[in-house]
Every structure is written in C-alpha cells, then in structure tokens.
Computed example of a mutant assay.
Amino acid sequence: MGWSTSTPQRVGVAALDDAVMGTPATRKNQRTAATNGDSSSPASSGRFQRLEVLGAGTFGVVYRARDRRTGEIVAVKCLRASDGAGDAERYLSDFASEVSALEACSGHPSIVQPRASGQLDSGAFLAMEFVGPTLRHVMKHVRFGRRHTELEVRLLMRQLLAGERRMNRLGLMHRDLKPENVLVDSHESLKICDLGLSCSMADGRPTLTLLGHGDIACQKSSSDPQITTSVSTHGLSAS
C-alpha cells in the first residue's frame, strides 16, 4: 500500500478512526454495557484501542492497537476514500484484494494473519496480527548492514518460499515481494505482508503490471499464457 514511516499530517482519517477505535462517548457506553452484562458490540465500533502510529500514507494510517475483545496486540490499517481523489478507487480495490488474499492464505505461518476487516461509509479497515519491523528495517538498522551468513539466508529463504508456495497453490501471485513487505517477529521468523497488489492467476485480467523486483523486473500482462507462478518464485530468489 506504500505506507511511509513518517508521522501523519492531516491525512483526513479522523472519522474513520472514531468508527474503528471508538470515540470517548462510545467507549464509555461500551464500559456501561459491559457492567450491565452486555458484552456485544459492533465489530467496527471502538473494538480497538489505539496505541501508536506505525506508518501513514495519503489515504490512511496504520496503527499498533489492542483488541479490546481479546487483549491481543494488532496492526490496524485504516483506509479512507478521499472525495475527489483520482487514486481512491484504485487504493480501495487494492485494499479489497489484500483482504481477500490474506483470508485465503489464513493459517500459514509465513504469511501475516488477518484478524478483522470491514467497510464503513468513510473507508475501510483491516486488523492483522502485529508482527514487528520490516526485513528492510532489520537489515539496515538492526544488523547495520552486516551480511547474513549462508545458513541464515537459507533459513530465511525457506520461510519466504513456503509462503510464496502457499499463495501459488491458491493461484495467487504477490507481485510486490521485497524486504519492505516482509515482517520479522521477535523470534526472527518472517511473515509476508502487503498483499494489495496480489492477483489471481485464474482471473485472466489483461492488465499490464510490473512483475518481479529490482533488475529482473519485467512488464507482462497477467493474462499472458507464458506467465505462471514460477515467475513470482524466480523474482523472489533473485531479489
């Protein structure tokens, strides 16, 4: 989705934040309902307690939050469809693709797990398990550029290939797999994320897209019969 790591400046998601995170009034009502023995509440009304901003973009913000129902720490992506913005429809389409792909891949240890999602009048939200920093961040700021050993690379690639294989078996291609879209948890395990550009090989959509990464990137139509899931795997191994 192209989230930056800067603090958001007037991204216009206040209304969506209130719907997902809850206003002080709705949180007070929820506490009153809980006291009266009514634990039910709308899935998108104050379910999450905002803890900190993880990143921000033109159309939304990603938060680290606590799920009030389960106590789990999650990452919540709030996307706002800005009126008059030409790219809003595309962002919402990518957002829907990400939700569908994550739900299809649910349960795989090398792909980030979805927790909740929904559409509101002001946009949409997606809650996922909170994993940790990106692989790019770890490589640059934790390892300070120190190269991985051959054994470490093999272990990392085994995890990434396992996640990619799961997607391929479901007929999905990630199409944007790079260190910025791989998360590292506290046990140094990897999880593929940011599936907004993924597509189904069964769709046969004649859309010109960028496949691969870095020097091997190539433009091909997703309906090209010569393009198979092996292209995505080759791009992963070479990037």
Rank of each mutant, 00 (worst) to 15 (best):
G132L: 04
D224P: 01
S221M: 07
S230W: 02
S198T: 01
V231A: 13
E103G: 02
F144P: 05
R166D: 06
S186Y: 10
L160I: 15
V231T: 15
T207S: 03
I192N: 14
F130E: 08
A127T: 14
S200F: 05
D215K: 14
G123A: 00
L177K: 06
F130P: 12
L172Q: 01
V142C: 01
K178C: 04
S223Y: 05
R146K: 15
E188W: 11
Q219E: 09
G132V: 12
R147A: 15
I111G: 14
A162L: 11
Q159E: 13
G132S: 09
H148S: 08
L183R: 09
L195A: 09
S232E: 11
L208V: 02
D121R: 12
P133L: 01
A104P: 08
V231R: 02
M157W: 11
H137W: 14
L151M: 11
V112M: 07
L197K: 10
H213V: 08
G163H: 04
S117W: 11
R115N: 08
V131Q: 00
I111P: 14
L135N: 07
M128Q: 14
K140S: 07
A124T: 12
E188Y: 13
S223A: 12
Q159W: 05
L151E: 14
L190N: 09
L195F: 15
I111H: 09
S117R: 05
S198M: 00
S230L: 05
T134S: 15
V184R: 03
E103F: 07
R169C: 08
V131W: 00
I192T: 14
M139Y: 11
L177R: 06
D176E: 04
S110T: 12
G145V: 13
G171S: 10
G214I: 06
L160G: 10
S223T: 08
Q113I: 08
A202R: 15
T228W: 02
R136Q: 13
G214V: 07
L177I: 12
R166I: 01
V182N: 04
H148D: 03
E188R: 13
V231Y: 11
A101R: 07
